[in-house]
Amino acid sequence: MQLDPKHLAALAAVVEQGSFEQAARWLNLTQGSISLRIRALEERLGGPVVVRSQPIRLTELGQVLYRHYQELQLLSAELAARLPQLNDERPRIRIALNADSLATWFLDAMAEVKEQLLVDLLVMDQDITHEKLKDGEVLAAVSAFGQPVQGCNANFLGAMPYTAIASPEYAAEYFPEGPTTEAFKAATAMVYGHHDNLLLQFLNPWQLKDGDFAVHTMPAAQSFVDAAIKGLAWTLVPVWQAQEAIDSGRVVELTPKDRIKVRLYWHYRRLDASPLQSLTEAVMKATAALRN
């Protein structure tokens, strides 16, 4: 069965842009044209490919098609690398990863392959990124789970160390006797989002659970150290991210002997495509220090 590439491109645009309207703008088409192309896919395949909600969601059938589209893009790029006269554009790879990886090492990996591919990044907790890979929404993911998803490889990246930090003034005010259960209850934590599993894992020795302490939520992990320096809260961050501020004395570690480590894995589709292989090599290079 041959599927019209324009119809697949319309589906990809709807998924990546989040709506029919934005997809139309992305492809320089009318919204009606996008709807017709999606409907043509659904009529050809005998079922819906998207759930028309906010945001748009893929059906099981749509997940298969979108994964197929992404793989075709990579294989086309592989062919273009072997036959330069084809002059194909760089493929676009959708990746799910956690905010801390983006704030620390992932940009180094991207810099290595910037001429070979484009990326769409979905930023979310490392405990759920692999679900996006299973659903066919991404071709690669940084995950805390080591078991490979069907049809994928999984490389161990290393163990990311985290430490709890605060400004010296904040630590003196809220933790005068060190890290105690009462001190953590009285202080305010800075988290990426509600129900931060990693923070609760860190606080487990103090028998604290969600709701026992106040939190600021800030979906911008790269700003957590700045927030701690300004005395807004204490927070849990990768040591890589906080090391300079620790060394300069702008923040202090609340529990320097109780750093917590998160094992991370790079999952990627099992494809013979150079751009994805190059990205994988760059990812492994950028995280080499985590494996030492």
Rank of each mutant, 00 (worst) to 15 (best):
A214D: 14
E21D: 06
L271W: 06
T129Q: 04
Q17M: 12
S19T: 10
M218D: 05
M124E: 08
W206E: 14
V252L: 04
T180M: 10
A282M: 05
R90D: 02
I38M: 11
Y69S: 02
R39T: 01
V149C: 00
H267L: 09
P176N: 02
Y69R: 01
G47E: 12
Q116A: 03
A10L: 10
F106C: 04
N204M: 12
G158Y: 01
L264T: 00
P219E: 08
N204C: 08
P55S: 11
F145Q: 05
V50N: 02
K261V: 05
R270D: 15
P48G: 12
S143W: 02
E137S: 05
Q222N: 15
M160F: 03
I165W: 04
R82V: 06
L254A: 09
V113A: 12
K185M: 15
T188M: 02
L61C: 05
Q241W: 01
G158K: 01
Q73T: 05
V149E: 03
L3N: 09
A186Y: 06
V64P: 01
Q70V: 05
D226G: 09
S274V: 14
Q63C: 10
A189W: 03
V119P: 03
E281H: 12
V283C: 06
L203Q: 00
L3H: 11
R250C: 01
A172W: 04
A77M: 13
A96D: 07
N98E: 06
A228I: 08
Q2S: 03
R94Y: 06
P219M: 07
A159L: 13
L121W: 05
L122I: 12
D120H: 14
D120N: 15
I95V: 12
Q2P: 04
T104S: 14
S167N: 06
A186F: 07
K257C: 03
H216Q: 12
A24V: 14
P48F: 05
G136H: 10
C152L: 00
G47R: 13
A24G: 10
L74H: 00
S19E: 06
N292M: 15
A40V: 11
R82S: 12
V50I: 13
Q73V: 04
S76C: 07
Q277E: 14
L83T: 14
I229L: 01
T181G: 12
A140K: 07
Q70F: 06
V138I: 05
Q85W: 13
H7I: 03
G47T: 10
E43H: 09
V50S: 04
F145C: 01
I260L: 12
A164D: 03
R270N: 15
N87I: 12
L83V: 14
A289S: 15
E71N: 09
A103I: 12
